[in-house]
Design a protein around this nucleic acid. Structure first.
Lengths: 260, 260
DNA sequence: GAGAGGATTTGACCCACGTCAATGCCGGCT
DNA sequence: AGCCGGCATTGACGTGGGTCAAATCCTCTC
């Protein structure tokens, strides 16, 4: 099962305003005081509702983590001790059946929040797709902090609300769409999210393997591959080297995605 | 598409501690002051975190609604003006594709919360399966109230968290389970929820039509029907009149549900 | 309690996608 | 540069569940 772009850093991420920018003199001082202020992805994440003093309190309990490709971030059933915010790279969430069948329930990118767990156990596993950077919050301390930061709590509720809507979109995809519609929806969805992060949506990066895509869409690798070549033949996409796709006829893809 | 037990009240509900109990003299006075105190399903719902004075404030903005079978509760894309709590009966949530294909994303029963909408539009439609009773909250006023009732807000976040976990279970069901496993999971899931509500889980009520079940599980009516008869033939379930099923061999069903 | 109309069940057949099996390709390592 | 290993692609074929169609069976209604 699974395995993707073996160790190579996620292509999509090379385009991020990365370390170079973070170390501009102007920001360096602020970053020393509370690193969250200088966060590249703050505007994308749940942290965007906090002002400077609030950010500082958050910064006090956060630690940043870098994980290599394929490293498990958290495991279904384990005590939910930490929550995470993805700051770079791509993380996949998945659940397994007893016999190894896998369903990927989501891909997370910079700005996405991870770990909202019912009770005190994670409901799913999470694994780094390429190299990934994360902000890690101890759950207890974050929960206590939430009592003082109702804005953040509201934001988390809004976030959960968003995720629920996305989950329902995924249900109609899994339950009612054809392979072609699934692939088209997947591309449109990734493109929209890349745009929101300020990354390129047209030569679109697909950091995950065909197997990952298949397990996300409820298909097999073979069907994913065949569908890609079919779309390529119809000249609606172009497969580029390095896990990139050009959305040659984006309108056609959008039509396919919504069941045209 | 769809249609179920046309007008007949949901069987499962007949067993609820209904009017007789609600009208005991002791409760009647309290109910007059603030009806939420006498609510049959309070212990099941998000309201269970509130104490008497808080309940009273909630009661001030709530109104109760009764809808006949097949009545639309809310419609995808409409302004999200109200939130609801189901107090009796069954509500189905669904999304449609342009050509009419439908995915039911959930069935709600007494105690379940409805309407958490992203932005200010509903992300799905909701329709009464049998006759349904609901508590209705104006969204604006509830949101304002939430500022004063952090406990309730926390509870809603926990609730959303639960729903996300359920959504992920549904994704693995839709994406990776066979028809038989889907039906088995469905029965086990409904049985567990009936138990939690204090209703009978073994002769289990199925208030929804075969078409609804199909649209929930990503199947067709025919396949749902065939799978039920198959399970009947294998003596793991018994189909009873009035939309009831006996889980003759619950262990076998549980094994099937988890991919045995 | 007889009739009507929809829901459910059953049957026959088909097809989109899965399975099994090569083959091709690309990136990394020596 | 050339080999190696894992991913992706392609091909041939099988099948679970969809489609179309025809009985039954309920359950309201009168």
């Amino acid at each position: 099962m699974s395995a993707s772009g073996s160790g190579r850093p996620v292509d999509g991420e090379r385009r991020m305003p990365a370390d170079g920018e973070r170390r501009k003199p102007a920001d360096a001082t602020i970053a020393d005081i509370h690193p969250c202020s200088a966060c590249d992805v703050r505007q994308l994440s749940v942290c965007n509702v906090l002002d400077a003093p609030e950010l500082k309190r958050l910064a006090e309990i956060v630690s940043t983590v870098t994980l290599p490709a394929h490293r498990t971030v958290l495991h279904e059933g384990d005590p939910a001790d930490h929550l995470y915010n993805v700051t770079g790279g791509c993380v996949k969430l998945y659940k397994l059946l007893a016999d190894g069948r896998r369903q990927i329930t989501g891909f997370l990118f910079a700005g996405d929040f991870l770990g909202l767990a019912l009770e005190d156990r994670y409901a799913y596993s999470a694994e780094a797709v390429g190299e990934v950077t994360l902000c890690r919050f101890p759950r207890r301390r974050l929960e206590r902090l939430l009592d003082d930061l109702p804005k953040l709590e509201k934001r988390l509720l809004g976030n959960a609300s968003n995720e629920l809507a996305a989950a329902q979109d995924q249900m109609i995809l899994l339950g009612r769409k054809t392979a072609r519609e699934k692939i088209a929806s997947f591309l449109i969805n990734l493109a929209a999210r890349a745009e929101r992060r300020g990354q390129s949506a047209d030569p679109l990066a697909l950091p995950m393997s065909r197997t990952d895509i298949a397990d996300y869409l409820g298909l097999t690798t073979e069907t994913v591959s065949r569908t890609f070549t079919q779309l390529k033949t119809r000249r609606v996409i172009t497969l580029l080297p390095g896990g990139m796709v050009a959305l040659t006829d984006r309108l056609a893809i959008e039509e396919l995605a919504s069941g045209g």
